[in-house]
Amino acid sequence: MKLTVSPAASESTAKRPGVPLSADRKLSLVLMVLFPICTFAVTNSFYKSVLVLSMINAIAAVGLCLMLGFAGEISIGQAAFYGLGAYVTAYLANQFHIEPALAIAAGAAVAMTIGWGISRPLSRLHEHYLAMATLAFGIIMYIFFANARAFTGGLDPGASVERFMFLGFDLSSMERYFWVVWVALGLSVLVAGNIASTQVGRSLLAVKMSASAAASVGVDVVRMKAFVFAIGALLTGLSGGLYAYFARSFNAGTFGIGYSIELLMMVVLGSLTRVSGAIVGAFIITILPVVFEQFEDYKTLVFGITMVLIMKFMPSGLVEGVLSLGERLLRGKRN
């Protein structure tokens, strides 16, 4: 193509190659530093364990953030992948006595395979229909978890695992297990951040904004949807495997619709289009019920009102809301 380029314009094209390190990445980094600071700051072992649980939830939330926030693919069945991760981990660890880290990896891989598998029949569904289909998938898997007792232990007695050992070291105490989960979250955030800042993330966004335009410039829409289902299921499965060693003993009740909805709340509350938002959302949804414990009978009410207020005043999520609030304050000072 030989179109004339004016000299003034061609000079300016050298600037800004690529996107700078995003605000999202910086914020994720800050959050990853804050978690260890928090765990050193709190002395109560219960709070320490809540902190670990919030990081486990954050991994699953990051997965859903990629699916819903980037690709626009809603899933109300994430608890199924969480459960798959947990049960496959427990099963492999108990039956074959393999290294716990390997069992967790295998659990995540199984969840990923199933996520990829269901994405094919789901790829033609949109919005409400996709929500219904994933909801149904979540319910079916819950029924499976509750009834396939030979594999899962059902609701009673449930499943249990040994202590978390890594290369012969006992890392099962909450202080040590914190670092196991921290590393897993760090890796998840790194990969999700890489997706967000390269062509893959851009393609996911393109599929959400206009699937037909994305296809017309060469994006294989079905493949991208399969990919995001796979990576969402992988991260949620990883989170489930980590949960197995966190709880040590659990039953199918954990993997019901309630958890899928909770994950959805985390992502919507934090920020749909920022990986760091998923971490913030997971932290708040996990911590708030504990903080509101003092309201006793009213805790569900207070929790509900808090959610409504946040969504009312910060509809695009806490992270966006706080950032724009800060920006407004700064501008106010300057004037």
């Binding site: 996107v19 904004m209 335009a213």
Partner: peptide, 16 residues
Amino acid sequence: MFSDMSTVEVVVMGRT
């Protein structure tokens, strides 16, 4: 249009 992307990113999508 990929409305929520920056203008340059929209064109970058064409390089897929």
